[in-house]
Amino acid sequence: MLKKVAFTMYPIRDVARARDFYENALGLQAGSVGNQGERYWLEYDLPGGGCLALTNFIEDQPSATAGGTIAFEVEDLDALMARLKARGVAFRSDVIHSPVCRMAVCEDSEGNSILLHQLKPRANA
């Protein structure tokens, strides 16, 4: 029986570049980090639960079109987009509006797709 999603994993090629992106551009803190020589497994535990793992242990190439995309809930989509664009981060979309959220798709330093997601305030029922 499935219990939960343990982690989402993305392949990386340049460990230092990926760490700079996730730790400095997105502000995540590395949790479990292990390596065997130049092969790394990095985990980022997210404040609201969940875990993102980055690794160069596998031969898969990073891809924005691989099918899976992690979606990060953010507090201020506009401010984060401005900060990331100032760092040269490529966005694959403008802000997308849905009935419940605003979101935008960008690429990490390795070319993987990331969806930034901000919930809209709920109307009082």
Results as ranks from 00 to 15, higher is better:
Ala123Thr: 13
Lys120Glu: 14
Pro99Glu: 07
Val89Cys: 09
Ser113Asp: 10
His117Pro: 04
Gln29Cys: 03
Asp108His: 09
Gly111Met: 12
Lys85Asn: 05
Glu75Met: 05
Gly31Phe: 03
Lys85Leu: 01
Pro11Arg: 02
Asp78Ser: 08
Gln118Ser: 11
Ile58Ala: 13
Ala82Gly: 15
Val15Asn: 04
Leu46Lys: 11
Lys120Pro: 03
Ala6Ile: 05
Leu2Lys: 11
Ser63Leu: 00
Asp78Met: 05
Cys101Gln: 11
Ala71Gly: 10
Ala90Leu: 08
Gln36Lys: 14
Thr65Asp: 09
Ala25Glu: 15
Gly49Phe: 11
Tyr44Lys: 01
His97Lys: 15
Ala16Ser: 09
His117Leu: 12
Asp14Glu: 15
Ala104Cys: 13
Tyr10Asn: 04
Arg19His: 00
Glu59Gln: 06
Glu73His: 08
Ile58Gly: 14
Cys106Trp: 10
Cys51Tyr: 03
Arg122Met: 05
Pro62Thr: 07
Gln29Asn: 07
Arg17Asp: 08
Asn112Gly: 04
Pro62Met: 08
Ile114Phe: 01
Leu84Trp: 04
Arg122Asp: 04
Gly49Tyr: 13
Val105Met: 14
Thr65Asn: 10
Val5Gly: 07
Glu75Tyr: 10
Pro99Phe: 06
Ser93Glu: 04
Asn24Thr: 09
Arg87Phe: 01
Arg102Thr: 01
Ala30Arg: 07
Gly68Arg: 11
Met81Tyr: 02
Arg13Trp: 01
Leu26Ser: 13
Cys51Arg: 12
Cys106Ala: 15
Leu2Thr: 10
Ser32Val: 11
Leu28Met: 14
Gly37Pro: 05
Cys101Met: 08
Cys101Val: 07
Leu28Arg: 03
Ser32Asp: 13
Thr69His: 09
Phe7Leu: 08
Leu77Gln: 05
Gln29His: 06
Arg17Pro: 01
Val74Gly: 02
Ala30Lys: 05
Asn24Cys: 09
Phe21Gly: 06
Gly68Cys: 11
Leu42His: 03
Gly67His: 04
Ala30Pro: 03
